[in-house]
Design a protein around this nucleic acid. Structure first.
Length: 571
DNA sequence: GCCGTTTTCGGCCCGACTGTTTTCAGTCG
């Protein structure tokens, strides 16, 4: 029996109980049991007694045991038999929860979207107690777009909107502080919406400017403390703004950053100290409410170190506090090892990229334009590579406090050979190998290509090791586990590509790479100066996997980095 | 349904918003 199946079954039971209008605490007990299993890193076989997990008791354990023994759950089967299947998707309709759906089913026989539409149009719904004309109208409107809108959007679609809104808020004189919150701040790969916390003494002015300046498809709510809109973009994006005072800001930011599970743990901790956390502050035993200058001060109030948003997930971060100091922050970054210039498909010249790296406070960086095979990207021949090296030398002569290295992002060709001969590679400071073609080859062929790069003594790093696009394509489907083991065996760096489009290695792979002690490089793969900003995102993504600073190559000093690339050459 | 160094019963994180009401339930995050 697969642990994931058990987790899904418990969640399904919770959903069905909800649809029957069951006690919400009973419903959440099943969800908690599922979450407890998920948060435990052990496999099913390694857990001897599930009831020892907090949140799993007699009832949920019985479901789990039955699943292991018989591969089915009579509890779920009974629930499924008593609930029409068509009700389940309706839970996703905004405004409808278990209670209302249960009533619609019992009173009007609603068991599908079609039937729901019928009874709304017939005016039956507004006659029910607790329902009214507005509810009926809203359901009809939501049914109109039901299933057509993407439920979650990938981070790369949201990131440009976040950057724009941040700039908009910063330009408003009434805004004292503002920050994105929610799952975007926690660097989730996809989010349902974007949340912003705004500190202001003039909520009305901020609300009016937001409604006037954003390109809005629909205003969902516009109250004194909350403005909720859907942006009119290629893919519509929901954005919530919480308008608070400067005093409340830190507490609100923490609250709306979540995750829900993190907040539950924090509130439990507060309660055990006789305090009460709300989004406005922390109520003390004597009833007074303490507010905070910053999230750091908020955590300090509970004798906790600052917990980065990226790790605030299932609550277990509160059990790993001693590991927090080892995580990298963007201040630890000394370099970016993967970027393009006008020599191939980049937008800026070598010296412009170099100066941008200096402006970011880095001590070194590598220019890695595409290689000759990638003609669409104007890939470099060995002759052009040699010329580019001269330009890099000129830059270095003019900037003695900084070191720009000459590198390449070399294609691993479809036939499994490399795009440059060894005598070209050995002249370069840093060699990246990556796949940009024939993604549909069999896994064996892909792995054979990657092995060629691994075995080459001049290759330092494999870039974007899976070729995935977040939320869209899975890439060229390598056996990543084996790839990580090869990196260990051959002493290569694997890349966490910080472009929100890619973000590979994904979290689970980073965890395994760290177990084996494989060095990771967080690189922006920038094709323009502006994209160097992705470093922050990449570093925070690495925190999600609890990657230790010492394994991140671009926290190393120039001397450490040079020692690494030299060792490679000498071998 | 789960849990307990104040509890084996009575809580379970907490508050805003909306729409339904005339003091509150349901939904959402």
């Amino acid at each position: 029996m697969n642990k994931k199946i058990i987790i899904r079954t418990l969640e399904k039971i919770a959903l069905y109980l909800e649809l029957q209008g069951e006690n919400p605490f009973k419903v959440s007990a099943f969800r908690k049991a599922a979450a407890a299993l998920e948060a435990d890193e052990r496999s099913l076989a390694e857990i001897d007694d599930v009831t020892k997990l907090k949140g799993i008791g007699k009832g949920t354990a019985a479901v789990i045991t039955e699943l292991i023994d018989t591969e089915k759950s009579t509890v779920l089967e009974e629930l499924e038999a008593n609930t029409p299947k068509g009700l389940v998707p309706l839970m996703k309709l905004p405004g409808l929860g278990g209670k209302k759906l249960a009533k619609l089913y019992q009173e009007l026989g609603v068991d599908s979207a079609e039937r729901l539409k019928e009874v709304c149009e017939a005016g039956e719904v507004q006659k029910l107690a607790g329902f009214g004309a507005k509810t009926e109208e809203k359901i009809l409107k939501e049914l109109g777009t039901f299933g057509t809108r993407a439920e979650r959007l990938p981070i790369w679609q949201l990131e440009p909107a976040v950057i724009e809104i941040e700039a908009l808020l910063q330009a408003m004189p009434e805004v004292e502080k503002a920050s994105v919150a929610g799952s975007f701040r926690r660097v989730k790969e996809t989010s349902k919406d974007i949340d912003f916390i705004v500190a202001t003494t003039n909520a009305q002015a901020v609300r009016e400017q937001l409604l006037a300046q954003l390109v809005i498809l629909e205003v969902v709510a516009a109250g004194d403390t909350k403005v909720s809109v859907i942006l009119d973009r290629e893919e519509p994006i929901s954005v919530d703004f919480r308008l608070v005072t400067a005093d409340e800001y830190a507490s609100a930011l923490h609250h709306f950053t979540g995750s829900k599970d993190h907040n539950v743990r924090m509130r439990q901790l507060a309660k055990s100290m006789g305090k009460k956390i709300s989004e406005y502050g922390v109520e003390q035993q004597d009833g007074s409410v303490v507010t905070f200058e910053s999230e750091e001060a908020f955590f300090a109030h509970f004798n906790l170190p600052f917990i980065p948003p990226a790790v605030r997930e299932n609550g277990s971060e509160l059990d790993r506090l001693d590991e927090l100091a080892q995580l990298a922050t963007v201040q630890d970054i000394t370099s970016d090892l993967h970027m393009h210039t006008t020599w191939s498909d980049g937008a800026h010249a070598v010296h412009e990229m170099g100066e941008a790296l200096i402006a970011r406070g880095y001590s070194h960086g590598v220019i890695t334009d595409h290689s000759q095979y990638l003609k669409v990207a104007n890939g470099l021949t060995p002759e052009r590579l040699a010329k580019q090296r001269l330009e890099i030398d000129v830059f270095n002569a003019a900037h003695p406090q900084f070191r720009l290295y000459a590198g390449t992002e070399m294609d691993i060709l479809p036939d499994g050979t490399l795009d440059f001969e060894d005598d070209v590679l050995k002249e370069l400071d840093f060699v990246i190998a990556s796949i940009h073609s024939s993604f549909t080859q069999s896994q064996d062929k892909i792995m054979a290509r990657l092995l060629t790069a691994m075995e080459n003594p001049y290759v330092h790093m494999i870039a974007h090791p899976t070729g995935r696009i977040v939320g869209e394509r899975n890439g060229y489907d390598p056996d990543v586990k084996t790839l990580i083991e090869w990196a260990k065996a051959y002493g290569k760096i694997l890349e966490l590509n910080a472009n929100p489009y890619r973000l590979d290695l994904a979290t689970e792979h980073l965890v395994y790479a760290m177990e084996l002690g494989v060095p990771i490089a967080i690189n922006t793969d920038a094709h323009a100066i502006d994209q160097l900003r992705f470093m922050d995102l990449g570093v925070r993504y690495s925190q999600k996997a609890w990657v230790k600073k010492e394994l991140i190559v671009n926290t190393w000093t120039t001397e450490q980095f040079e020692a690494f690339i030299r060792k490679h050459k000498d071998n």
